[in-house]
Design a protein around this nucleic acid. Structure first.
Length: 561
RNA sequence: GCGCGGUUAGCUCAGAUGGAUAGAGCGUUGGCCUCCGGAGCCAAAGGUCACAGGUUCGAAUCCUGUACCGCGCGCCA
């Protein structure tokens, strides 16, 4: 619809130049918007105002010329007016809207999807929690945002690879092994033999118990049987990592989040990719030695200080494998990569990008893209629940899903822009009333399904789409509802392009509200069969869009509740 | 101190890439069930868009500065 109007405006502009009514030859991008105020029609353009300067005429004068050239639009609109400082407002003929409904009903499950991605490859890395404990609520936000980003990109034609990176090497893992070992030996937190900065959570006790019992853990491609020897630190480490990977996999499964590729930091070492990157960086001349350490001159790439690559003890700092990992992504052919991560890891961005630039292999400056999510605070009973992994007191993702349900959890995480902090009110998420937007939206879908059931009982089948059937939709609110439905593809495209999944959540609430309002005011199943059929088609178009949008958020569209 | 994010109604937050009279939910107040599911609907009240400048036909939106909140600033990840 928008594209059609845009074409008409382009044509009108060209005609003005051809007839000499306008002279500048300027060709600004034609912007069309849906005005907030319905009095301003269905669409509005600021084209005349943009042309005012190059034309050196008053905006309204330019608008006059354009409106004359637009003519009657061949019945596409029923009103065309110049308003305010020089807007041109279009009010479409009701008939023009029926095409949209027809399209929704015909395209059904794929309505809203697009081909803008043209099958190009994009890789999205998200969650990427260290295997040192269960997933907490912050990972949950990352999982919800990342997963919906993937769904949005796939819906707009991208070939998406979902990837999870396990930091299963390094100091934190060593720390994990020590913590489990301490538990194996019956050492409690607080004991003077307890490792400094050890993980104190109860789950460490579970890992220790399982290890001592000689259990076997299957996680991804890892199958580890516990050696049960509390003095074999290396065996403990392998077992603990596998154990916690399995836990995290189960958490993600409960959240309905899946990955195509799991990458292990440890593999970057065993495959020699870390050494390779170090050699390349040294060869490119961006490193230096100082204080018994090897440094990367990241200040040459916008960092505020240089960073150590190889510590005095000979091991590497975390960002070296990170750079190796991203070089690997690049070499796998991902010219577009999006990393979704918590804002507390923000400082890695400059470092990783700097390392990649220093490699001199033609990686673009701003590569990869990042989507950061801000911190989550949890509210229970109006009180903030403190999160501390090392102290072991925090809300796990699995607890949350069990308590409030998968759908509500996902929706709450996606109700906010990811770069704004989020307050997760557990009590609200659990409520089954109108205070809770999750139920409000899903209920709208269930309601349409209920109407369909009643229609079927009354022997009224859902008619085939077609403009003839839709002509019985004459009410303003029916046009308004259709207008909202017609906006859906743009919402999807906008959310995908700007990497802002929350837009879907807001759109869903708006659509549900419009539907509930319509439902309350008008009956669908009425005496007049023509009206009944038309309204059935309308509410089923609503059902389709609700279901598609819920699907993109990874939520169910229940037929009854 | 430096970097990033935030600041919009009593509360929680949108604001579609610069548009017309700044919106929603919750909460508050007052209405609507002989009616396809009241898990719903309608209405009212509620604003110095943190502050000060700037850019232009036009700014919550872009730029500069200030204030406050969060996060980061390690040879941890």
């Amino acid at each position: 619809m928008k594209d059609l109007l845009r074409q008409r405006l382009q044509a009108a502009l060209q005609e003005c130049y051809a007839t000499g009514t306008l002279a500048s030859g300027a060709a600004p991008e034609v912007q069309l918007e849906v005005p907030g105020n319905p009095d301003h029609g269905d669409f509005a353009t600021n084209l005349a105002m943009m042309l005012a300067k190059p034309e050196r005429k008053a905006p309204r004068q330019v608008a006059e010329a354009l409106v004359t050239a637009l003519g009657d639009g061949g019945g596409l609109w029923r009103r065309l007016e110049i308003a305010g400082p020089g807007f041109i407002n279009f009010t479409l003929a009701p008939l023009a809207w029926f095409g949209t409904l027809d399209e929704i009903l015909r395209r059904d499950a794929v309505f809203g999807s697009a081909t803008t991605g043209a099958g190009r490859k994009v890789q999205v890395e998200f969650v990427s929690a260290n295997p040192t404990g269960p997933l907490h609520i912050g990972h949950g936000r990352g999982a919800a945002v990342g997963d919906t980003l993937c769904r949005l990109l796939a819906a707009t034609g991208w070939d998406v690879t979902r990837e999870f990176y396990y930091n299963d090497a390094g100091a934190q893992i060593a720390n994990l092994a020590l913590s489990v070992q301490a538990r194996c030996l019956g050492i409690e937190p607080g004991d003077e033999r307890w490792p400094a900065d050890g993980y104190q959570g109860e789950y460490i006790r579970d890992v220790a118990r399982s290890y001592l019992a000689g259990e076997t853990v299957d996680a991804g491609d890892q199958h580890v049987t516990a050696a049960a020897d509390p003095h074999d630190l290396d065996a403990i480490r392998r077992f603990a990592v596998a154990y916690l990977r399995r836990e995290q996999d189960q958490d993600l499964q409960a959240f309905d989040v899946r990955f195509d590729v799991y990458s292990l930091e440890s593999a970057l070492y065993t495959d020699g990719k870390v050494e390779d990157v170090v050699r390349r960086l040294i060869a490119s001349g961006h490193t230096f030695e100082a204080d018994n350490a090897l440094w990367l001159r990241t200040t040459g790439f916008g960092d505020d200080k240089d960073r150590v690559m190889r510590k005095a003890d000979g091991s590497y700092t975390y960002f070296v494998p990170d750079v190796a990992y991203h070089l690997d992504k690049w070499q796998r052919g991902f010219s577009r990569v999006i990393n979704e991560q918590g804002a507390d890891h923000h400082s890695t961005i400059t470092r990783v990008r700097a390392g990649l630039q220093a490699l001199d292999v033609g990686i673009p400056k701003g590569w990869p893209d990042y989507v950061l999510h801000q911190m989550v605070t949890v509210l229970r009973g109006g009180e903030e629940v403190k999160i501390s992994k090392r102290a072991g007191s925090y809300v796990t993702l699995r607890d949350l899903i069990e308590e409030v349900g998968r759908d509500a959890t996902r929706f709450f995480f996606l109700m906010r822009r990811s770069d704004a902090q989020l307050v997760f009110d557990i009590d609200l998420a659990k409520q089954q009333g109108n205070e809770n937007p999750v139920f409000y939206v899903q209920y709208a879908h269930a309601r349409v399904c209920s109407i369909n059931r009643n229609a079927a009982e009354q022997g009224v089948p859902l008619p085939a789409a077609g403009e003839a059937e839709l002509a019985a939709l004459t009410l303003d609110e029916e046009v308004a509802l259709t207008r909202l439905l017609a906006r859906y593809p743009e919402v999807v495209a906008g959310a995908a392009e700007s990497l802002e999944p929350h837009r879907l959540a807001f759109y869903l609430q708006e659509l549900a509200a419009a539907f509930h309002s319509y439902y309350n005011r008008q009956r669908v199943l009425v005496d007049d069969p023509a009206v009944t059929r038309a309204r059935l088609l309308l509410v089923n178009a609503v059902r389709i869009v609700l279901r598609n949008a819920l699907g993109l958020l990874g939520m169910a569209a229940p037929e009854r509740m």
